[in-house]
């Protein structure tokens, strides 16, 4: 019962982070802030959802389920490494390619256009 609650809370929090990341990708003004939203969303939400699933596996405590939970945690660690690094590499590539950084002046211009 307690484990179920913890699992549901973790998965729900993960989904909230996912929604935040998705909204950020659509709403943020330039490449870098969008990548920020995507990276944060993917790393944190996948982490929370997977930890939630690992906790759910442990509700029926056997050796096999413990192994499955361990495998899920390995996936989590892997994503915690890979996702921020890929975000970093993409942003660096964007910087080298010459993507413009969004500033206050840009904000004024977009408001004038509207």
């Amino acid at each position: 019962m307690i484990i179920n609650t913890v699992c549901i809370v973790l998965v729900l929090l993960g989904i909230i982070f996912f929604v935040g990341g998705a909204v950020g990708i659509v709403r943020f003004p330039d490449f870098y802030t969008r990548m920020h939203a995507a990276g944060k969303g993917d790393t944190m939400s996948v982490f929370m959802v997977l930890v939630g699933l690992a906790v759910y596996q442990l509700s029926d405590f056997t050796l096999a389920n413990l192994l499955i939970a361990g495998k899920i945690l390995f996936i989590t660690i892997f994503i915690m490494w890979a996702s921020p690094t890929s975000t970093h590499a993409l942003i660096k590539a964007g910087l080298e390619e010459g993507q413009k950084v969004w500033t206050r002046n840009d904000k004024k211009e977009t408001e004038d256009e509207q």
Binding site: F78, W81, A82, T85, H88, A89, K92
Partner: peptide, 15 residues
């Protein structure tokens, strides 16, 4: 090579 990317790949490639 980029330090962050290089370090992460060094960790991940053996795995």
């Amino acid at each position: 090579p980029d330090l962050i990317v290089d370090t992460t790949c060094r960790l991940m490639i053996p795995i």
